[in-house]
């Protein structure tokens, strides 16, 4: 029994350590760790200031669909990274890398999207320390 307790304590320790790496936030509302969402289906892409928004659906293991919305930079900023207003179309299936909101709601700051052929479009945010400004 003691060994089981030690094992559980070890698991808790590892997870706590992982958790502590989320604590260094640059952007007040978002986690500092990237979540990966495979087979995300784009439902809408808006090309607007102050931020373009990628909306997509993700199914969990039970088949429940979550409706997500992720912001990226402004059109002038992401244009420099290869985005256009037609970069994402409804129905596109991509892998989404996202810094989710700490609130637990299905919104976040996009890190990048990867298409099935490996093409990648990344956002303006590279990660960063305190005081990082996400208004781009």
């Amino acid at each position: 029994m003691k060994s089981k307790l030690l094992c559980l304590a070890f698991v808790v320790g590892v997870l706590t350590f992982c958790g502590s790496t989320f604590a260094h936030h640059g952007s007040a509302a978002y986690s500092n760790s990237v979540a990966v969402m495979k087979d995300a289906t784009v439902t809408k892409f808006t090309w607007n200031n102050p931020h373009c928004i990628v909306m997509f659906d993700v199914k969990d293991e039970k088949g429940n669909v979550a409706h997500w919305a992720a912001e990226i930079g402004s059109p002038p900023a992401v244009t420099l990274l290869g985005w256009t207003r037609n970069s994402l179309q409804p129905g596109d299936v991509v892998t989404v890398y996202i810094w989710p909101a700490k609130s637990g709601r299905p919104v976040g700051r996009l890190n990048k999207v990867v298409f099935p052929d490996g093409k990648t479009l990344r956002d303006t945010q590279l990660g960063g320390g305190e005081g990082e400004d996400k208004k781009y």
Partner: peptide, 15 residues
């Protein structure tokens, strides 16, 4: 979470 944000990296907004 599978990938941690790199802390204290200089931020260059558009690479």
């Amino acid at each position: 979470w599978s990938q941690n944000r790199q802390a204290n990296q200089p931020v260059r907004a558009d690479d």
